[in-house]
């Protein structure tokens, strides 16, 4: 760990006042402190934001609003969330461990860093950590890496489960900086690695996430998050699917789908959504609709199984929803 200054802010304006590229906001610290100990993140200033009033889980006419400092466990167990947005609760419940979820915040979750082992080991080359140094994962161990949205510079997955569910439900993030506030659709928040994998999102230096809003929809209440991994708990996804269906009778009226564990960012699958719309909710429909889900995938030496796993995860999630009806 490198020396840094530590301050605690009491208001959003105070927190963002002179925050810049060298500043890291401290929420639960489950990503930040971990990576500082590994010398992967070396902020000169750490600003504790835990006293900021970024709380509250509310449902109104527009939808669900969650403060950036709400803890993962509080959101996961919230009755409104469980009832109206089950996939959000499930995505959180299937994340990390109970202890971590008691600490970790919603804002921090969306900004957690990749679990690529080379990113976390400062003795190896990694373009995301050290632009231009190379990507060790291309020739190294890459079983858990992405197949969609990758570039020659970086093939790391975005690890958040919550973000996958939020992208499926067209959530937006509210941001604040010294220049004012703005709202960005989460699907446009994350950047593809391209040649600049160290740029992970559209957040400006010193900009703060203040909250997340998820619109009301006829499908959010009939949704599921399926997470596939080697062990039953306490592991990131090899593949995950956030699926919401609006069914009329036995016909799919609307579908919203995003997948995790396979993309360099949470990956919305609008093609699959379209292929389901207006079709009977049957195994045949599901099989054919997911046929192209992994189109354009660029598998690596150790993750050639991911296109097939992705398709099957989707069929599994669709089947769960159809059976639950």
């Amino acid at each position: 760990m490198r020396p840094y200054t530590f301050t605690q802010s009491r208001s959003v304006s105070e927190a963002v006042a002179d925050a810049g590229a060298d500043t890291a906001f401290l929420a639960g610290g489950t990503t930040l402190v971990d990576l500082m100990k590994l010398d992967v993140m070396t902020p000169a200033r750490v600003v504790d934001i835990n006293r900021l009033p970024l709380h509250g889980i509310t449902l109104d006419r527009d939808g669900l609003h969650i403060g950036a400092l709400e803890r993962m466990s509080d959101v996961a167990t919230h009755r409104t969330v469980r009832q109206h947005y089950p996939m959000i609760a499930q995505a959180l419940e299937l994340s990390a461990s109970a202890q971590l979820c008691n600490m970790a915040s919603i804002g921090g979750n969306l900004l957690q860093r990749t679990r690529c082992g080379y990113f976390r080991d400062v003795t190896t080359a990694c373009n995301k950590r050290e632009p231009g140094s190379g990507c060790s994962a291309l020739t190294g161990v890459n079983r858990s890496h992405a197949i969609l949205g990758t570039s020659d510079a970086c093939v790391a997955t975005h690890p958040s489960d919550l973000a996958v569910a939020l992208v499926a439900l067209s959530a937006v993030v509210h941001l604040a900086s010294a220049r004012g506030t703005r709202t960005v659709p989460l699907d446009e928040f994350y950047a593809l690695p391209g040649t600049t994998p160290h740029v992970e999102n559209v957040l400006r230096p010193g900009e703060l996430i203040t909250g997340v809003s998820v619109p009301r929809s006829p499908w959010a209440g009939h949704s599921v998050y399926v997470k596939v991994r080697d062990r039953q708990s306490y592991e990131f996804a090899l593949a995950s699917a956030a699926v919401a269906l609006e069914l009329r009778g036995s016909t799919v009226a609307q579908a919203r789908i995003a997948v995790g564990g396979v993309g360099t960012r949470p990956w919305r699958l609008t093609e699959v959504e379209r292929a389901l719309t207006g079709r009977p909710a049957t195994p045949d429909t599901f099989e054919s609709a997911v046929g192209g889900a992994a189109d354009g995938a660029r598998p690596l030496a150790h993750n050639a199984f991911k296109p097939a796993l992705l398709r099957r995860t989707l069929v599994r999630a669709l089947t769960v929803l159809q059976e639950r009806r």
């Binding site: 679990r115 858990s144 062990r231 039953q232 306490y234 592991e235």
Partner: peptide, 24 residues
């Protein structure tokens, strides 16, 4: 996993070297 070209063992935490958890 062993990296054949470097001799480096890729796993170095209990998040990537998996042992069963209670749920397993």
């Amino acid at each position: 996993p062993l990296e054949l070209d470097t001799g480096r063992l890729a796993g170095s935490t209990l998040a990537d070297y998996l042992v069963p958890v209670n749920a397993d």
